[in-house]
Amino acid sequence: MQTHTNNAYYVPPPSIWPLVGSIALLTLATGFALLLNKTAAGPYVMALGAGILLFMLFGWFGNVISESLAGKYAGQEDASFRWGMMWFIFSEVMFFAGFFGALFYVRNIGVPMLADAQSLWPGFAAAWPTAGPGLKTEIMPVHAWGIPALNTLILLTSGVTLTWAHWGLQKGKQSQLKLGLAMTIALGILFIGLQWYEYVVLDFTLRDGIFGATFFMLTGFHGFHVILGTVMLIVILFRSLAGHFKPERHFAFEAVAWYWHFVDVVWLLLFVFVYIL
């Protein structure tokens, strides 16, 4: 791939946004630590940090979008964004891999070892789900073929509608693009709503032993990613309405689509390893 054009690679002028972002994370972390330690100022400091972070995101992405519209990302820069997004998604894969690893560890090694230690925990038998030998809580797991199966269907469908929207974009059919995106967003919101409902009606919490902990950590971080993906799709919808994307040049759309499919795949693994098995 020979990507050097007559243009020099676009090196942006000095920017205030990285510094703003660092101040945002410093404030956010300080506020969170204060909140966790029951300090009254905690929530306010956190809110301030979140506000600065939002300010930074609007400013920084605004910058990127206007540079993109000005045609600064036409050559080699585009390949950089593609590589960058791929490696970012890889880091996300490893993040979920860590939690899946924890799940596999406790199910196959941790809990059986506790059951082997009969002198420590007499009468404890290795089973899944379990809240552990000390809590004595009965866990009623979620029935996989209820809401979770429906949610699987919803996310898989959303992958189809998103691809359909992409086809619309590539063929220059603006209405197909917008309709497809709107449907994908609606399905995303539906998924989040159903997941929320499931959390409400469940009779165990993340405090209920290792099952509750792994269940909520995995599904919680996944749900957080779906929310993030939905927000990203909404931004893409607004940018589509503003006519930012061309049939041959629309990497922002593709990046969000990659992200959405990644979240989709994580859900399939969750469905198998958290809900069915």
Binding site: V106, M113, A131, G132, P133, L135, T205, G212, M217
Partner: peptide, 17 residues
């Protein structure tokens, strides 16, 4: 801070994990 038991044997977790 949130009462999970990843590393607490009483809840089925494992500090070795």
């Amino acid at each position: 801070n949130f009462g999970t038991h990843f590393f607490d044997a009483a809840g089925g977790g494992d500090p070795v994990m």
